[in-house]
Design a protein around this nucleic acid. Structure first.
Length: 787
DNA sequence: GTTCTAGAAC
DNA sequence: GTTCTAGAAC
């Protein structure tokens, strides 16, 4: 408290209510800034128009639309700010009709409101992505010229970056509309808003999408005994647990000091009566709902070192159990001889972990209740990155046991996972796993992969691998804790109120809780979901844009990726390469060529590769031979074992070059790979050397085909034969090099001049290219035919 | 004044 | 990815 500040005259007028009111009276109203938040196709403009034209209460409204602000054409944010400022000064309320999905994009409008002492509202049009996409795709004559197939891409990309508006940004009111009904209600609300009326502050209409995570420490952490009864740990006797709440284990789950609970021990539970009794007791003390059963992550198919893995399991479990009382972890493996179980058991006992709250269990994770007598409401799945069933092991077993409903539920929650993250999927009650085993939640976890045959292979880098495995378990346990907390919140509304009240600064509980859940959503977005476009989004994008499997020969859009990589590093997830949304198209095609077989872009399909015309050809003839091997994304992944594949891809490329030469004998082809491809899934370019194409537009396009960035297929094959890998790939710096003719090597100041030059340059190709069949022309193919 | 590019925005 | 535009380059 600075007495000077309090006593000083209003050199800088504080945004006090009285001052604001005085100004309003002068202007005869109380303007407001309404920042619309939503992707293209969400109906922002319709909303704004409806408010502007439908106002029944006399409030003057101005729609500030960035798509039309420049004399009917798209303008800048600055123009919008200026227009908004002018309107507000005239006492008019404004609707900011631009996407405003990211905090930074809307910050200036919030600031403007602050400067002019008017309330700033956010209206988030949170319609389902597919609704926005389909609207954006099908609309005609859009002011911002965003329609058709590209709209899908744009919407998807924008939604990835979406940051839910927060009160802490400076909004006095945030309203979420989740469907057209909500939107109508919001329009009605603003239409009925008189010039001097104001709307209540706070957050309205937000759907709670997941378990609340913020505040969980307060709720479960040791030391906060107000809402959680402390576990008494291993010293409690079984009889004392009759009241249930205190002992995390029911008496039927006989946990030895050795902490391994084997199925044999539980055989007696097959007795129906006892089972019923068990179930009853479990229900009453609810231990099942506080138990997580999990398989060892990454140690099966992903071949993670068992010794290291067991250390990490014990470490993360110990940390977790120290932080949270009243929860139980069960490490499950099928075999009695399981080495990971025995290692974990050993290390856990050395570390003196509470053996009643961390147990190892031999059995089938999908039959813990019926066969093992264990009640575990939450089970973890060692998932694959696409969250798809199959593949064998625990993943296949869980998806099989849970039935289709798990697949559907999973799709609703997430589309893909990055190594080191997990996602909670509430298991529908129709699922056999729910009905039979009492599993209410499955948490999919993706760990690090040390298997060269699987995606995201870490090449035995255990520094990275261990970090990711740590992350994976931490993420799993945190998500588990959030489920427990959410359950307890449901059971005990008093505790929930305590949690909110203990938030302290919030004027009302509802607001606080909503903000919390909101924070949790953000956390979920940043931490749990993959930073790149989700598989579902990709799918929808592909559907909307098919065929969308063009090759992107530039890296011009790498910036957002890099930013996201930064985020990953922060959260401990280290990715070798982040593939953007469009970068997935070839992968999608390679995995499911049948889906696209009716497009004329696909020239040939085999078990090993797909040949297709590049959607944005950089020359008269430009096709791609795409490998269909999962996990083989670029030259960096190529090993000796892939040589036969590379040779066959080369042959396929040659065949197509020859076919094109039959049509146009003047062409010359080069076959090669980009050192650093923009799209995942290894693909070989077959490109004619005329570079006569309107799609070749910039320096990066040009340099990606005419500098050492382009790696001739023959050289790649030779290099792998000799060294086992493609070592001499050049980096992306060469893409910024000066523009030189690929024939005479003359330099040119810009793309148009260069293109003009190459259209007439008749120089022979550099001698280096004329060797080893790097160039394919009629003469070379004739020669090849002879030999 | 016109052309071109880089970067923002979609 | 494409479109658009401000400002650099000519």
């Amino acid at each position: 408290m600075n007495p000077d500040a309090g006593g000083s005259s209003s050199a800088t007028p504080p945004p006090s209510a009285s001052q604001g009111a005085g100004a309003e009276e002068e202007r005869g109203g109380k303007p407001v800034v309404v920042v619309l938040v939503g992707p293209p196709g969400c109906g922002k403009s319709t909303f704004a128009e409806a408010v502007v034209t439908g106002s029944t209460a006399g409030r003057p409204w101005v729609r500030i639309c960035q798509d039309t602000i420049g004399n009917g054409k798209a303008g800048t944010k600055i123009q919008c700010l200026k227009a908004a400022s002018d309107a507000l000064k005239e006492g008019k309320s404004v609707l900011i009709d631009r996407c405003n999905l990211e905090r930074e994009q809307r910050a200036d409008f919030v600031k403007l409101g602050g400067t002019l002492h008017v309330d700033v509202h956010a209206v988030a049009l949170d319609l389902p992505a597919k609704v926005c996409i389909s609207r954006a795709v099908s609309r005609k004559g859009h002011e911002g010229n965003l329609q058709g197939g590209k709209a899908a891409l744009v919407v998807n990309r924008m939604l990835q970056k979406k940051e839910t508006p927060l009160l802490t940004e400076g909004f006095s009111r945030i309203m979420s509309c989740n469907d057209d009904g909500d939107i109508k209600k919001a329009v009605d609300l603003y239409n009925a808003l008189g010039p001097s009326d104001s709307l209540p502050s706070g957050i309205f209409g937000q759907k709670s999408k997941g378990p609340v995570q913020v505040g969980i420490m307060k709720f479960l952490k040791k030391g906060d005994t107000s809402s959680v009864e402390k576990s008494s740990g291993p010293n409690i006797t079984l009889s004392e647990s009759k009241q249930g709440q205190q002992n995390p284990l029911p008496k039927h789950e006989k946990v030895e000091a050795g902490i391994t609970c084997q199925m044999e021990v539980e055989k007696g539970l097959d007795d129906k009566k006892e089972n019923e009794e068990h179930a009853k007791e479990s229900d009453s003390d609810n231990v099942g709902s506080r138990t997580l059963a999990f398989p060892s992550i990454s140690t099966a198919d992903f071949q993670f070192d068992l010794d290291r893995a067991s250390d990490i399991i014990v470490d993360t479990a110990a940390d977790f159990l120290q932080k949270f009382d009243n929860v139980r972890l069960v490490l499950v493996d099928l075999s009695e001889k399981s080495r990971i179980l025995s290692l974990v058991k050993q290390k856990a006992s050395k570390k003196s972990i509470d053996s009643s709250r961390f147990v190892t269990f031999v059995g089938d994770i999908t039959q813990l209740h019926t066969k093992g007598g264990l009640q575990c409401s939450v089970i973890a799945n060692a998932a694959n990155w696409r969250l798809k069933p199959g593949g064998g092991g625990v993943n296949a077993a869980i998806f099989n046991a849970a039935g289709e409903s798990l697949q559907h539920a999973t799709k609703k929650c997430a589309d893909a996972l990055r190594p080191g993250t997990s996602v909670v999927v509430p298991l529908p009650s129709v699922s056999p796993l729910h009905q039979r085993e009492g599993v209410t939640h499955v948490i999919h976890v993706l760990g690090p992969n040390m298997n060269p045959m699987r995606p995201d292979y870490l090449k035995n880098d255990y520094t990275k691998g261990s970090k990711i495995l740590h992350e994976a378990y931490n993420s799993l346990f945190e998500n588990f804790a959030s489920i427990v907390q959410s359950n307890m919140g449901k059971q005990n509304s008093k505790s929930g109120a305590e949690m909110s009240a203990s938030g302290g600064t919030s004027p009302n509980d509802t607001k606080m809780k909503r903000e919390d859940s909101h924070g949790s959503e953000r956390m979920k977005k940043h931490k749990l979901l993959p930073p790149t476009m989700t598989a579902k989004q990709q799918h929808e994008c592909t559907k909307a844009n098919a065929p969308n499997y063009h090759d992107k020969s530039t890296v011009s859009s790498a910036a957002p990726n890099q930013a996201r990589e930064g985020d990953n590093k922060k959260s401990g997830v280290v990715a070798s390469k982040t593939w953007g949304s469009w970068a997935q198209a070839l992968y999608e095609l390679a995995m499911h060529p049948d889906k696209y077989k009716n497009t004329d872009s696909i020239l040939e399909t085999s078990d090993e590769f797909v040949v297709l015309k590049d959607l944005y050809p950089k020359a008269k003839k430009h096709v791609l031979v795409i490998s269909r091997a999962d996990g083989l994304d670029s030259l960096a992944d190529v090993k000796k074992e892939h040589l036969p594949l590379l040779r066959r891809m080369h042959s396929a490329g040659l065949k197509w070059a020859q076919k094109f030469l039959e049509e146009d004998a003047s062409l010359v082809f080069r076959l090669g790979y980009h050192s650093v491809p923009s799209m995942r899934q290894l693909h070989l370019h077959i490109i004619s050397q005329d570079f006569n194409s309107t799609s070749l537009k910039n320096k990066k396009h040009w340099n990606s085909f005419t500098t050492p960035f382009f790696r001739d297929s023959v050289d790649v094959i030779e290099e792998i034969e000799q060294h086992g890998s493609a070592t001499s790939s050049s980096d992306e710096k060469v893409l910024a090099m000066e523009l030189r003719c690929h024939r005479c090597r003359s330099a040119h100041p810009n793309i148009p001049k260069l293109k003009s030059h190459i259209s007439t340059c008749k120089s022979s190709f550099p001698s280096h290219l004329q060797q080893k069949n790097r160039l394919i022309s009629l003469s070379t193919t004739m020669h090849m035919d002879c030999t």
